[in-house]
Design a protein around this nucleic acid. Structure first.
Length: 420
RNA sequence: GUGACCGUAGCUCAAUAGGCAGAGCCCUGGAUUGUGGCUCCAGAGGUUGUGGGUUCGAGCCCCAUCGGUCACCCCA
């Protein structure tokens, strides 16, 4: 008989993990709402074609990371690898263009990528994502970046730096890519083999290559920022101006590019310093070409995805004090069948009055029941035994002070409520 | 997907040179009848990830496989 375990690269989120998840997700939701973003939830499954169109053939996501299958009706579906395409799909499908623009959406949902697992990289991971669709105002870019930055601060993470770039639009980027290719071709003998491959498939990606051998050539490469068209240059200028206005520090990194084709103009990453190596904990950018790519009218948009597991791990490591699960106010211990009956009734009465209460199960020694009450962090133990049954009372013991008193059973709720 | 390292109880880890698989934590029971935290005693819990191989004998050596980690790759 085989033992089952979670599929490779997937994880259970256990009760012990939940305080951290609730902390991060709660702050994320709060930040999103603070900035006027509204929650959306899209199906975990999407048409394979949707992701093919938006991520682009040749991207790693499409070529080797998608969980794709044919359903019983013959449709090709995929487990959602990222959140932006479904959000824009929903925008188009539900005619959100009629709402006041931009439409600002957020989600916290699982994403799936068939990747080889490593630290901070999973086949199923959760992303907190925000999408602002329907405006190309550079301050939308500034705002959405500020939202993420504020979230990191709220969960107590320091040492996270913002790297930002503009990668132009379909007007100006092709000219730049042409120039870049010219430069790389001229120096191909100094490029690493892997980068020669990239040169063919996705020249922009050579820029963020980590190949030692290629660095000199990359240093000398033309900067896309010098090739922006008039509109893109103005947009880029305004984004930086806005970030400066709100005192958001940033590092301009002209080599920051994107793995997904539909990104335009603003591209950004939040990098965390995790023992020596940098890990992206949130990244996003503008995708003014996405809506058209999936058959809609031209609609500008910008968004980001934040890796919840990565942020949760950092919050855990930070040693911050996280609000714990609500402990019961009352643990009802009992001895004997009659007492168990009373315990069941009393615990329900307490709950009906919004007092968190749990009862002991099974027939165990009072000592053990008290131990359990203590382990659960209960503030009080209510004890029901023969004496109490006979007298119609219940013994209430404070587990914080150790004080103990006898109260009439019908006054129990009132007695506990008064104490709070 | 490539390379390297690692898999022993629910958790953290022991086990000489191939020679009976252990400890702490957790859990359960108990330490004068019905009272938690500290302490003490006892118990439960294992096909040593899995499948083969070598050997009189394998947790330890070999092969495969699964899983994890690290560096690439890529990303959140």
């Amino acid at each position: 008989m085989a033992r089952f375990s979670t599929p490779r690269g997937t994880h259970d989120i256990l009760p012990a993990d939940w305080p951290f998840w609730r902390f991060v997700a709660g702050h994320a939701e709060q930040a999103a709402q603070l900035f006027g973003y509204q929650r959306i939830e899209t199906p975990i499954l999407g048409p394979t074609e949707l992701f093919l169109r938006t991520s682009g053939e040749g991207s790693d996501i499409v070529d080797k990371e998608m969980y794709t299958f044919e359903d019983r009706g013959g449709d090709s579906l995929a487990l959602r690898p990222e959140g932006t395409a479904p959000a824009v799909r929903a925008y188009l499908e539900h005619g959100m263009a009629r709402l006041s623009q931009p439409v600002k959406l957020f989600y916290i949902e699982p994403m799936f990528r068939y990747d080889r697992p490593a630290r901070g990289r999973f086949r199923e991971h959760h992303q907190f994502g925000c999408e602002a669709i329907g405006s190309e105002d550079p301050y939308v870019d500034v705002e959405i970046i500020a939202l993420l930055a504020q979230l990191y601060r709220r969960v107590g993470l320091r040492d996270i730096s913002l790297h930002i770039n503009s990668i132009g639009c379909r007007e100006c980027r092709p000219h730049y890519v042409e120039e870049l290719v010219r430069h790389l071709e001229a120096n191909r003998e100094d490029l690493a083999e892997r980068d020669l491959e990239r040169l063919q498939t996705n020249p922009l990606r050579v820029l963020d290559s980590k190949e030692q051998q290629s660095q000199a050539v990359i240093e000398e490469a033309p900067s896309i920022l010098d090739w922006l068209c008039e509109d893109c240059r103005e947009h880029w200028k305004r984004v930086q101006h806005g970030l400066t206005l709100i005192d958001q520090p940033f590092v301009v990194d002209p080599r920051l590019v994107r793995g997904l084709d539909y990104y335009t103009r603003t591209a950004f990453e939040f990098l965390a310093d995790t023992d020596g190596s940098w890990l992206a904990v949130g990244a996003g950018g503008r995708y003014d070409g996405l809506a058209e790519a999936i058959g809609g009218p031209p609609v500008p948009g910008i968004g980001f995805g934040m890796g919840v597991e990565r942020v949760v791990a950092m919050v855990k490591d930070s040693g911050a004090e996280i609000p714990q699960q609500m402990a019961p106010d009352v643990f009802v211990a009992h001895m004997g069948d009659d007492a168990a009956d009373r315990a069941l009734v009393d615990v329900m009465r307490l709950r009906d009055r919004d007092i968190p209460a749990v009862m002991a199960f099974g027939q165990r020694s009072l000592k053990t029941q008290m131990k359990q009450a203590n382990a659960l962090g209960a503030r009080n133990a209510a004890i029901l035994g023969e004496d109490e049954i006979a007298g119609g009372t219940v013994t209430v013991r404070s587990l914080t002070t150790g004080e103990q008193r006898s109260v009439p059973e019908h006054d129990l709720v009132q007695d506990i409520a008064a104490e709070n």
